[in-house]
Design a protein around this nucleic acid. Structure first.
Lengths: 355, 355
DNA sequence: TGATCTTTTTGAATCGACTCAAGACACCGA
DNA sequence: TCGGTGTCTTGAGTCGATTCAAAAAGATCA
């Protein structure tokens, strides 16, 4: 162990421990000569300040926990990067934890972070209404919900997922699709539900305004728009592929002509399955993903996707947290909501598709 | 702050602090009746053990730092996932830090982790020979190099990058390419250099064994294999695209017929640029990437790539670290090296390409 | 030179949990 | 009733850095 402590430094520099502490924390109040002796001793002994002891004494940590649903999802990597960047400017460390959308893992991480008395926790919860989150806040660890709206008990940053789903739905309907598949993840994930609600609302609006038929070729004979939803067990490339294979196996007349996937990983897997089964995208099957991760643009067929300000989500979350920590009394919880925007690429754009 | 401490619990349960500590750490030595009283008090007060104080006293943390070059690169996400999984089994927490290939950021993270007295550090260093790493180990924080071979001063897990580069080179040469471009990242990154050396060795072997001409159509008129190397400032999709654009701008006769990219992000960007400039892959330009991330298979043209056992790297690193921590005396540093393997997909496979 | 004010330095108390030698207690047989 | 044997419980001391009232050292001026 790095066993050199402040006491040894004090001895070698022939000063008291109080002075060493002052050099470390408020060097300007120490006389230059003494300061130099202490710095020399520190260097000679290779002293490294024990942050654990410091933290115990001052009671406040410079560490923030960030719990995400899936570290391997570039969406969260970008959120983390945004958070990290801003935290860094405030000399604060972000520790990234992966819940893998598993409530038990999430709970373990929450326990660990609370036990470590972190400054606060940013979390994309598996279940935002879990009493655990309220307890944390009540016991003094501020929590900011990320990519998930809070209800006033804590701060949150999110993107309007219903709007995102709606935009995607409107887009596909405008392109003439009359039988649409929604490929979701676990129902327990709020984002999945909201995106589903969003496309549902787009579909029902379409039914209301144009009861008789479609505006463009490709509409079904009866005119009404049909929406089917599948909820896969995970928001992963693998489960997207599984969904795609299931779709490909359907008889043509039952098969939807477009799929809206709850995230880009699902969409990429779905796309792979289409290619594997000889279905052309977007001609036989249009696809719209969600998150607009960098890989979406680089897919087999460049993927249309509902984009979110990923890094900004992370930055804003840190910002809210620092604000709360700085003035716990004055602080009013806020819910920041960003707008998603659809990036149309080839996977849903019939005009650019091969004949 | 969560201000309830062991003393309050002791008061409420009408026992001493020692007994509460025993309940927490060695419940079996406490009589069932007392144990229950203590557990009740803990529950009623919402007591959460202060890991900071515990750590200060026992001197050993249950946290491991993992510093990677780029959190947004799925390769590292997978390594992290592997590490996390094994650490979890040993009731240990992995905190993920991003150096973004910046030595200053790396240093800051190393400082922070050492100050926090973590159990150990897994790192993919920007510069493996940095004296800082040796200092850390000397002062008692074990270090395991990840994806980078050590020289006996510490443990390491790596994949043979020269072999990987060699395999990729041999593959491209066999496919008849006689003018090959190596797209690297910063020269300072060891992996980039090794992969370059690998393909260089493949090229020079090809020159030696077949000085007069190629084995397959497509060889240059003079027969020799030519290798050009570009070193981009980052291993990112963006810089891959920039490299691709630069290549596309070359006159056909000067343009290489194949590119070996130092990682898949570069390769995906490069691929996008080809598509944007109407160059067909693999017909006009074959591409081989590195890492075989999940997105490689889902690219515009499925990407050939040199695969690495990503999660195994992470697991093994944790394994080595835990071994060292468990028996610091007996421990002998080990260098574990895995073999890469080439996954051939459409991007480098002329036989499946369009006429 | 002594009084007064300012700048530095000191060191014991503190944060919260853990350790362990020592004490309290229960039970048994004589 | 007493000593012996195990089983539980106790609480002062400890980990390392910070704090802050108080002491010491230095500076200034009459």
């Amino acid at each position: 162990m790095s066993t050199t402590n402040i006491k040894e430094v004090a001895q070698r520099a022939r000063v008291s421990v109080g002075t060493v502490s002052n050099v470390l924390n408020r060097p300007e109040i120490v006389s230059p000569a003494t300061r130099k002796r202490v710095f020399d001793a520190i260097r000679e002994l290779g002293f490294v300040r024990n942050e654990v002891a410091r933290h115990l004494r001052v009671g406040r940590s410079r560490t923030v926990g960030l719990i995400v649903l899936d570290v391997a999802n570039p969406f969260f990597a970008d959120v983390a990067q945004g958070a990290d960047a801003l935290a860094d400017e405030h000399d604060t460390m972000v520790v990234l934890c992966n819940s893998a959308a598993d409530p038990a893992r999430e709970l373990r991480h929450l326990d660990q972070l609370e036990q470590q008395r972190v400054m606060g926790i940013l979390i994309t919860p598996v279940d935002a209404s879990s009493p655990r989150l309220a307890e944390l806040a009540a016991r003094g660890t501020p929590v900011v919900l990320v990519d998930s709206a809070a209800t006033g008990l804590q701060c949150s940053v999110a993107v309007d997922d219903r709007l995102g789903g709606h935009i995607a739905g409107v887009h596909l309907i405008e392109r003439g699709h009359r039988k649409i598949l929604f490929v979701g993840g676990p129902r327990s994930i709020k984002q999945v539900g909201d995106r589903h609600l969003g496309i549902m609302s787009a579909v029902s609006e379409a039914r209301d305004t144009e009861p008789g038929g479609g505006v463009e070729p490709g509409g079904g004979p009866g005119g009404g728009v049909e929406l089917v939803a599948w909820f896969m067990p995970a928001l992963s490339v693998t489960h997207g592929r599984i969904a795609g294979e299931r779709v490909a196996a359907l008889p043509v007349e039952e098969r939807p002509t477009a799929a809206f996937c709850a995230n880009d990983l699902l969409a990429l897997g779905f796309l792979q399955a289409m290619a594997a089964h000889g279905l052309r995208v977007p001609h036989d099957m249009a696809i719209v993903g969600y998150d607009d991760i960098d890989f979406a643009a680089a897919a087999t067929v460049p993927l249309s996707s509902v984009g979110q300000p990923r890094e900004l989500l992370g930055r804003t979350a840190i910002d809210l947290l620092l604000e709360e920590v700085a003035e716990p009394e004055l602080h009013r919880h806020r819910q920041v909501i960003f707008q998603p925007d659809l990036v149309v690429r080839q996977s849903s754009d019939l005009h650019r598709s091969p004949p």
